[in-house]
Amino acid sequence: MTRTVHPIEQESYAILRRELAASHPDAAALPPLGRAVLERVVHASADLDYAADLVLPDESVLEHTVAALRAGVPVVADVAMVAAGITRRQTLCRITDPGAAEVAAEAGITRSAAALRLAAEEAGPGAVYVIGCAPTALFELVDGAARYRPSLVLGLPVGFVGAVESKQALRESGLPAVSNRSGKGGSAVAAAALNALLYQEVGR
């Protein structure tokens, strides 16, 4: 199955590649999957600075993730906006589940962290986690890494409180991950990073 790319998207990619080449020439040296993730993040945000801000794993990690996605591994999103931005794949997102509020109250954690726990119970080990909004969900995943055992974490929450720290904790955890150093990020960026890998299944 071939993915049809709209002419506007083709033109947008041509522009961003020219601008990346001019402002961040090292981006051209990235291996194919790493470059695909970077380009789709830049495409979603119109922010070329991600070329220096994004932290990518080894290409072999991304290759493994593409294979896992092709095999049907579950995808877990922290919030509905992330889930809505992920195309070609149903996601597990329990942020609106009444049980998330109950777990949050009982455990003294945020609803986002509680929703991640609920989704993980259904997903099981080896899922791909996409965190674009809630640093507390990312801290929950890092602190409970032995329970979650993710194939890949796309940890790109946005904000001024906990975003930078949660992403630093993710990188220091040793979990396979895509993250960024600054407080930038967000639902659209996180979804775009995963979409870049999902699109490898159908070609561009």
Results as ranks from 00 to 15, higher is better:
152 L>R: 00
50 Y>V: 12
161 V>A: 14
65 T>E: 13
158 V>C: 07
70 R>S: 14
200 Q>D: 08
27 A>K: 09
17 R>A: 01
66 V>F: 06
190 A>F: 08
113 A>P: 05
77 A>I: 10
202 V>M: 14
41 V>D: 07
111 R>V: 02
113 A>Q: 01
49 D>G: 14
116 L>I: 05
97 D>M: 04
122 E>R: 14
100 A>E: 02
109 I>A: 07
48 L>D: 13
183 G>I: 09
101 A>M: 08
17 R>W: 00
134 A>S: 14
138 L>A: 10
154 L>N: 01
41 V>C: 12
183 G>W: 10
160 F>E: 11
129 Y>C: 02
45 S>C: 09
125 P>R: 03
203 G>R: 10
16 L>T: 08
1 M>T: 12
129 Y>V: 01
39 E>K: 04
32 P>K: 13
65 T>Q: 06
26 D>G: 14
40 R>A: 11
132 G>N: 03
196 A>H: 02
164 V>F: 11
185 G>R: 07
193 A>D: 02
119 A>S: 13
192 A>W: 01
89 R>A: 13
99 G>N: 04
44 A>V: 12
69 L>A: 00
153 V>G: 05
57 P>F: 08
185 G>C: 04
74 P>Q: 00
19 E>G: 11
78 D>T: 02
7 P>H: 09
66 V>W: 06
32 P>W: 13
57 P>L: 08
122 E>I: 15
119 A>P: 09
117 R>Y: 10
69 L>G: 01
110 T>N: 07
5 V>Q: 11
15 I>G: 07
188 A>N: 10
120 A>M: 00
96 T>K: 15
51 A>M: 09
49 D>R: 13
26 D>C: 09
45 S>D: 07
105 A>T: 11
93 C>K: 05
143 D>S: 12
36 A>Y: 06
160 F>Y: 12
107 A>K: 14
101 A>F: 01
10 Q>E: 12
164 V>T: 12
4 T>A: 15
115 A>V: 12
